[in-house]
Design a protein around this nucleic acid. Structure first.
Lengths: 172, 172
DNA sequence: CGTTTTGTTTAGTCATAACTGAACAAACTT
DNA sequence: AAGTTTGTTCAGTTATGACTAAACAAAACG
């Protein structure tokens, strides 16, 4: 146990698992695998290596990386003297994720508010619709709490976060 | 404005919208439409009416209702002297929803903990994996906050929640 | 009893989106 | 310049799952 072969099996399992998790959240599975690989390896990985190590086409890497970049979870960097693009985890991907959920919840809340506004004030449904909107409001309030907690724990782990993102990395 | 035709258009929009929301959360759109209809109408609706009013097959109602029942969001009731099944919102669907998310997060957390346990304690990845698990932990802590908030606002709205669920409803 | 109503299950269709290979453009190498 | 590397885009394939129609079982009705 705890030999290299074992560790690699654990690594692959984690990466695959992360793929399933993000898939169930509506993202391509490959995007999750990339994310999982960046978490596990904690390193800067080249475009080509992503395709090679994950055994998928470069086209898939391209689209999944675009999604991860759009969501602010992954950052593209260059290496001095290297032609390939390299990728690493964005500075605080978890906070960014939570902020994305908040944004979505706000949009749903706005929609429900619009529904209420377009009804007569004494409509029988207004109470239930208000409770419905309230649900998303509490979720967002709760996420705000999680965001502040994340700050705390991030500080605790600061020493263990290798490879603080830089805009430009020199060759090793 | 605010005439019956308008209100009905608003109603249909809300129902369709709720369908989209739940679809993006991995549930069939029809399940969301049922849920939205129950929220808007706040009434007890028969199996047949669901199919008729939503213009979908009875088979779809059957599967979507099963999903909603499994998740504890909708309750099946009988009406004295009626052969059809009837459905209404479960007592506190929002709390149930949040608890479902908590359960899922816990399961992901457990998986990550398993990953960490199967690695040498000094593995370089442990710090990042811990932060990853921590993310799901804070989310769950936050949901706990939302759950207590929900209690509060539910009390505020108690007077506006019609049709408190009963196990058995007499005919009107 | 046969017929009707009702909900579930199953087989099949259809829509969607992930993924790939190939074509492509841009930048670099020689 | 010709050829190579690199990332994106596009067309096509494939896998998944929502949805339906039809078959079905159970219960109520006549």
């Amino acid at each position: 146990m705890f030999d290299d072969a074992n560790s690699n099996a654990v690594r692959v399992d984690f990466i695959e698992n992360t793929g399933f998790v993000t898939q169930s959240e509506g993202l391509p599975r490959i995007a999750g695998r990339i994310f999982g690989m960046l978490i596990f390896d904690g390193d800067v990985v080249s475009f080509g290596d992503l395709a090679t190590k994950l055994l998928v086409s470069r086209a898939s890497i391209s689209t999944s990386i675009r999604i991860l970049e759009e969501r602010g979870l992954v950052k593209r960097v260059t290496k001095h003297g290297e032609r390939q693009d390299f990728f690493q985890l964005a500075p605080n991907p978890y906070a960014t994720m939570l902020e994305g959920i908040q944004k979505r919840n706000r949009s749903i809340q706005t929609d429900i508010a619009g529904t209420i506004k377009n009804l007569p004030a004494d409509a029988e449904a207004v109470g239930r619709l208000t409770a419905h909107a309230n649900f998303y409001a509490s979720r967002n309030a709760a996420i705000a709490v999680a965001l502040s907690e994340l700050d705390t724990s991030q500080n605790k782990l600061a020493g263990q976060q290798p490879n603080a993102p830089k805009d430009h990395l020199d060759a090793k």
